[in-house]
Amino acid sequence: MTGKRRVPPTSRIAEFPKAAADQARWWERHILEVQHGLPPDAPEGTKPRPGFDPKRHSLAQRERAKAAELTAAGHQVSASGIKQRHQRYQRDGLVGLADGRSAKQMQAFGQVDPVVVEAMRQAIAETADASSRTIGFTLWRTQQILSGREETAEVELPSRATLYRLFDKLAVGTHATGSARTRRSVGARPSGPFGEVPASAPGELMQIDSTPMDVLVRLDDGVAEKAELTAMVDIATRSITAAVLRPST
């Protein structure tokens, strides 16, 4: 068994607090040694340490060996605790090893300072009755709003790429860079009963929607009819987890 890193799909570990992300990566190294016999950065040709060779020791034995090793090093953990982390890692990847309490504390916009979010909301709102603006103008205006307030004048802006991603989230449905007429029309609508619910981990929030397909399909009884496509989307990863094509869903 080689020491190459075999990592299940992960999602948004960079949006966890740094301490939680670093801890998850620390655990990943130990879990991969339990799983494959070698840590991910082991040089080619390295042999597993005693107690971790998959050819000589069962998975349960390797989990007990890792629990004993970490406990001796001052990290109190049981074999069942190692097993649970191993299962979460196989199911959720690196995110599965992060402290779940940290995930609950994550802001809807990752690590972006809330005052930056508030300032950009204001900059976007100001475009409702103005002529069309570019994203660059909105970013500039956001910085002006922050610098114009004594309590936020020293706030450090995130990278330009992060600001663009923040704009994409905040500007959804506002037509901030589109038609001024459409923007004013949208702004005049009454507030709807629904809002955006952020999702920070795979499977936390799923959405299902159906749409008619503009094609005819021949059914089992020989009748030609239009079909509907129903799909389930995972909000955190923006991936389609299930889909079905039927005459009626």
Rank of each mutant, 00 (worst) to 15 (best):
T134F: 02
L163I: 08
S147D: 14
E156S: 15
A153K: 15
P202M: 00
T138M: 02
T230R: 12
D214N: 13
A153D: 14
L216Q: 13
E196M: 08
L157R: 08
G148H: 12
S191F: 03
L205F: 15
W140C: 01
Q144Y: 00
P158G: 12
L166P: 00
Q144S: 04
V223E: 15
V233M: 11
T162Q: 07
R160Q: 12
A199E: 05
E204L: 01
A180T: 14
T152H: 09
E204T: 06
S147A: 15
G173Y: 03
L216C: 14
R181F: 10
V197T: 15
S191V: 09
T162C: 08
E151W: 02
P212S: 05
L163R: 06
P158R: 08
R181E: 14
Y164V: 08
G136H: 10
Q144C: 01
A176P: 03
R218Y: 15
V172Q: 03
M213V: 12
D168P: 04
S200N: 10
S147T: 14
Y164F: 06
G192I: 02
S179T: 09
Q144R: 04
R183K: 07
E228V: 12
P158E: 15
V186W: 01
A171Q: 07
Q144W: 00
G187S: 13
R160M: 05
V172E: 02
F167Y: 05
L216W: 13
G148D: 12
L163E: 09
